[in-house]
Amino acid sequence: MATTDLPAASAAKGNWFERIGAGHFLLAVALLVYPAVASDFFLTQIGGYSLVLGMLALSLMMLAGYGGMVSLAQITVAGVAGYAVAIFGENGANVLGFGWPWWIVVPWAVLLASIASALIGWIAVRTQGIYTIMITLAIATAIFYFAQQNYAIFNGFSGFAGVRAPQFWGVDWRAPLPFYYLCLGIAVLAYVAVLYGARSTFGLTLQAVRDNPRRMRAIGYDVTAHKVFAWFIAGIVAGLAGVLMVWFNGRISPGTIGVGAAINILIIAVIGGMRHPIGPFIGAVVVVLMQTFAIDIVGAQRFNTLIGLVFLAIVFFSPDGILGLWERIKPHLAQEGLRPGG
């Protein structure tokens, strides 16, 4: 995909509108006016939540799409940030809760998350390909059990409740509208950063490492360092999502970072498609809508069967997710348009 984007990026230097693309403009306008038509429920439970999950899946898409490392530990990284917010900020569990101000807690939590991500990456990059899934899943599960058993730091099974989004600049960021815009702002930031980063020197090097690590090593690149740094960056994105996630839920417990949640992120990324950073967000919207409304169709009990079957169908019939479906349909649509009278 980088090769198709490159000529457009260099040719359209003068025209900033074309450079950004009409699709992005339409999307931006739609997202900005969305609060005008959406109820509070749609604003936070669908809009905000999709954006948070989309960011998490975006961090996975970065690693998988550009680095060739499919991680199941992204929710764990987000959980590190979430737990850090609860532990160093304020929580209602009367365990720890140092009460640091938000402008220290948030960068600190994101930093911790990205360091944790880099460490996980450092372990995972020792092996290749399919092993990464196994190792990250093992790490995610081990940390889940650890958080569940440990009361001194993680407050065990119940975790931390009563974590609140801060109030500053005269805005209560917990309220639906500000929270939506907060999520939107950070998600757009992450999206643009990933889109831009993929064309940066580092991004291109990472993609080259993905395609042929031996050749890159022979040329003189430090393959391991590039991969670990990719994990660090993905950790920043996942950490930011983790902070938003704990503000959104108001609580964090081992269940938040459990295996089901870890797999959920992978499902979102796969359903959406991992070839372009927009994929994870599409996947997040689809999954959140399914989660919310499938209950009316199949009942709350059998929801997982439905999502599992949808996931299986996507893996079987469109390996590149919804984005892949779109790529396949687009040429047909274009041809329809060319036909006289069509």
């Binding site: 797999i263 992978l266 997982n304 069967t305 599992g308 996931f311 299986l312 893996v315």
Partner: peptide
């Protein structure tokens, strides 16, 4: 990925 999907459906 397919085994993940199967495990979700099977668990449910």
């Amino acid at each position: 990925l397919v085994t993940i999907g199967i495990s979700i459906v099977a668990a449910d």
